[in-house]
Design a protein around this nucleic acid. Structure first.
Length: 511
RNA sequence: GGCCCAUUCGUCUAUCGGUUAGGACGCCAGGUUUUCAUCCUGGAAAGAGGAGUUCGACUCUCCUAUGGGCUGCCA
């Protein structure tokens, strides 16, 4: 067991866009595999044909790739254990269900969904909270345990619909050791006879999962906590198939919770609180409704991944910024927390800010250029972009902040900040702008230091405070009441542009 | 209702029997800054409750409370 090759799988079902909780599950699988030199496999679990959503499968791959988690094998990536999509593996499952029937661990059941629903409703009315198809009730139902062999064969021959259910033993403790949670124990009396094989010829999750994990030689199953209650059932299946020797180890991850209140993070919470719950933007093919994604919101995938990694795991040191390689190096399932973690969007933004600052001016220049081009400002000079980025990066969380807060680098002011205009623009400030226009016009050195010297000399000679001249000057050139150093701004804009803007302001802003 | 899992500052978390219970986000205050942001300094802020075990429990055990998950021919 210990020297077995590590092979983990991420097995989402393509019922919609992968949400961030799913991405985190994938991430922990990926980190674990890479840390141990193992394989990370993508398997598509589409056994429920009624919930298929077009585009979801591609979305899953695109999301994983955006995050830098490229599967070693799996659906869309090839590999020796294919196919990696359960609907394409359909012919393989029946024999395993039959094997269980033959060994007495499963049976045919002819009760229809409608009958079962009715049964549950009746039980509810009678005051029983929950009716289950289990080792007690099955003796009153229509199945191969209650019907004669003849009857069963006849029904099957007549084409009557049936399912195959697992036959759970009575009053048996099923125990297993979860890597994250330790020993977990459940009595079989509390589990129902789950359907393994559906009447539509497809296996349920429970069967397909165990069969595929076995056939694909999966060494560790790392999945969400919502699977913990059915883990004992899975343990039993491995036992009944005689696969206990090669049974994968389980690790059940804590859930991602909504920021306020309690409960699992859902799409609605994102809409309500204003943050994405999906890595990439997604448009529902049914109604055309679209949901925002971290990528489109301007998050760096490294920041997104770093944040997700820390939601439920930490390295035990005080370092918080980790590249994917560093995460791989430090990761261990033993340090994954047991309790659910609430998502904190402020922290996510903080991570993005950290990654933004860590980028070089050249990288920033490139990124800003693309963002600017998308906004209609094309073919900008790289050194100009680099200077803007360098100046704006300390006050930005996203690349687009530079573009929005520093819009004056890309276009002349179209309007002037009303508050500053009202409070700071008067006969005096107008005069100062005129004077500065003359003084700046007289120099050809538009370096930051020279501009500052000229400005300060003007202040000194006229015994003026910065506050008397600065705001009006800023307003004239940028249209704003706040921002970074005016000398740097003017230096970047250049002499001609700066002077023209001052003139425009003087023309447009009478007192 | 039943079963399972969980419980340290508002949030993410460190602590693996002995600590002034540490860090980060956010928040507050002060400083730097012409302004805003950044940055720097400081501050408020936590072991759900109750029993044990122990010389000593946040840490181990049990009970209670609270929260979550599951309870489908969904995954």
């Amino acid at each position: 067991m210990s020297d077995r090759k590590v092979r983990v799988r991420f097995a989402p079902s393509p019922t919609g866009p992968l949400h961030m909780g799913g991405v985190r599950t994938a991430l922990y699988n990926y980190l674990f595999a890479k840390k141990l030199g193992g394989d990370f496999i993508l398997r598509i679990e589409d056994t429920d044909q009624t919930r298929f959503v077009p585009g979801a499968e591609d979305y899953i791959r695109e999301s994983l790739e955006w995050c830098g988690m490229v599967p070693d094998e799996g659906q869309g990536y090839g590999g020796e254990f294919g196919p990696y999509k359960q609907s394409e593996r359909k012919p393989m499952y029946r024999q395993y269900a039959d094997q269980l029937v033959e060994s007495g661990h499963a049976y045919y059941a002819f009760d229809t969904s409608e009958e079962l629903t009715k049964m549950r409703e009746l039980a509810k009315k009678a005051g029983t909270a929950n009716w289950q198809y289990n080792n007690v009730t099955r003796s009153h139902m229509k199945n191969s345990l209650t019907l004669s062999e003849e009857e069963v064969n006849k029904r099957i021959a007549d084409g009557e619909a049936y399912v195959i259910r697992i036959k759970l033993p009575r009053n048996e403790e099923v125990k297993f050791e979860d890597i994250i949670r330790g020993w977990v124990s459940v009595n079989t009396n509390n589990i129902d006879d789950k359907v393994l094989f559906k009447s539509d010829g497809m296996p349920t999750y429970h069967l397909a999962n165990i069969v595929d994990d076995h056939l694909m030689n999966i060494s560790h199953v790392i999945r969400g906590e919502e699977w913990l209650p059915s883990a004992p059932l899975h343990i039993l299946l491995y036992r009944y198939f005689g696969w206990e020797e090669s049974r994968p180890q389980f690790a059940h991850l804590p859930l991602l919770l909504k920021p306020d209140g309690n409960g699992k993070l859902s799409k609605r919470d994102g809409d309500r609180l204003g943050f994405p719950v999906f890595p990439l933007q997604w448009t529902n093919p049914e109604d055309g409704e679209s949901s925002s994604g971290y990528k489109q919101k301007g998050f760096f995938s490294e920041a997104f991944v770093n944040m997700l990694a820390f939601l439920g795991w930490n390295p035990g040191t005080e370092q918080e910024i980790f590249s994917m390689d560093e995460l791989i190096e430090s990761f261990s399932l033993e340090r994954v927390n047991k309790a659910g973690a609430k998502y904190d969007h402020d922290k996510t933004k903080w991570y993005n800010q950290q990654y933004l600052r860590a980028k070089t001016d050249a990288e920033l220049s490139d990124l800003l250029g693309k963002e600017a081009a998308a906004a209609g400002y094309e073919n900008l000079d790289a050194s100009f972009l680099a200077r803007v980025a360098n100046l704006m990066k300390e006050r930005a969380y996203f690349i687009k902040d530079m573009l929005e807060e520093g819009d004056y680098f890309f276009k002349r002011p179209e309007e002037y900040d009303a508050k500053t205009l009202k409070k700071k623009w008067n006969v005096d400030s107008r005069l100062h702008v005129e004077k500065l226009q003359t003084l700046f016009g007289a120099t050809d050195d538009f370096g930051i230091e020279n501009l500052e010297t000229i400005f300060k000399t003007y202040l000194e000679e006229n015994e003026l405070g910065f506050g008397k001249v600065g705001p009006g000057f800023r307003l004239a050139v940028t249209g704003k009441g706040m921002g970074p150093s005016m000398f740097e701004i003017c230096s970047i804009l250049g002499k001609k542009e700066t002077l023209e803007r001052m003139q425009i302001a003087l023309d447009k802003l009478p007192v």
